[in-house]
Design a protein around this nucleic acid. Sequence first.
DNA 1: AACAACCACAACCGCGAGTTA
DNA 2: ATAACTCGCGGTTGTGGTTGT
Length: 373
Amino acid sequence: MGKGRAPCCDKNQVKRGPWSPAEDLKLIAFIQKNGHENWRALPKQAGLLRCGKSCRLRWINYLRPDVKRGNFTKEEEEAIIKLHKDFGNKWSKIASCLPGRTDNEIKNVWNTHLKKRLSVKKSSESSADESKLESSSITSSSSSSSESFFSNINDEQPTQLVTMNEKIELDSEKKVSNEIIISITENPKESSTSFSFVDESNILNSSLIVAFTPEQQQQQQQQQQLCSPLLTSLGPYDVNNNNSNNNALQEVDKPNNLIEIPWDSDDDFWKLIADNFESMQSNEIQLEEVPANQTPNLVEESVQVGETMKWSHEFDNEFGIVETKECNKDQLSLPKNYAGELGVDPQTTFDLDAMERPESELDLGYIQLWLLA
DNA sequence: AACAACCACAACCGCGAGTTA
DNA sequence: ATAACTCGCGGTTGTGGTTGT
């Protein structure tokens, strides 16, 4: 090689700027199938005109299933302030103490909110008050170490402080939930259509921040990695039925930032969806083949099921299939925009057992929609 | 209504560290 | 030993949205 640093990619050959939903899906699909062992090679393999670095960033900061969306809670902000005091601008270190938050996100929140807020506070308070501020803004601050920082993320829930061992036990409880999931997915009629009747909310809402030693921290991260698919939200996209824009997908928790997938997306895009649907189904078949009395690796199995569940739900969201409010697992309703174009009452629900394709398949999008349904 | 200023945050860039051949 | 390569981190920029005039 020549002297100097080799560029990470040929900038003329790669696409830059904001990611499109189709690109996101391609990336998600590829990583779900193949993982991300080599970021540099990934874009080519995934059929993306992006540099590996860009893919990595997109995945880590946005698409990764365990990324928590939405605003930072007061507790999280306080934690960041405290951690920043200890670590300085070591954003990745701070992020490792805040489950579901990325270093980039924390960095942004610090630069845009917390830094300013702190400087305003400091300037407005006397030096005597400053020491008071430090002790009051941080709960349980008898130790200056951040290793044992804790708080509850969800305001509505009581603070839960657990040790690593207890955390593992809690994760085991999640496995119980997963067994429920397994029993549901074993029914092929229901497997590919509606999922939120699985009470994932219990998992999602029981947000815990664990008090752990550095060793435990590492352990916890591994544990979290294994279980993350089960703790996932449903990815960054969701269908907003109240949205008056036709055929639009929205980012979860981002009602003001609409992302649209036009229904005339290219054939490759829809093929991608269909391909992944097939692989998803084959996963379920594998699961069914495991005898009930043999659970070789619960965690692995849970991850697999979790992946399947998440994917299935993501597909539902992508295609705008939503479950009824009562979360009846056998019935689906269509979002208004699709229902309208299909000439169906939006209130109509569909019995999955008796579901037939409509006669008016308006375009490829709908053909695929009904193919999947 | 139009424009400017500001804000938030996703994405990019360059560097250092670790790994591999 | 070292050059080449890859990844991850922290700083910075660009862009779209919001607010104020």
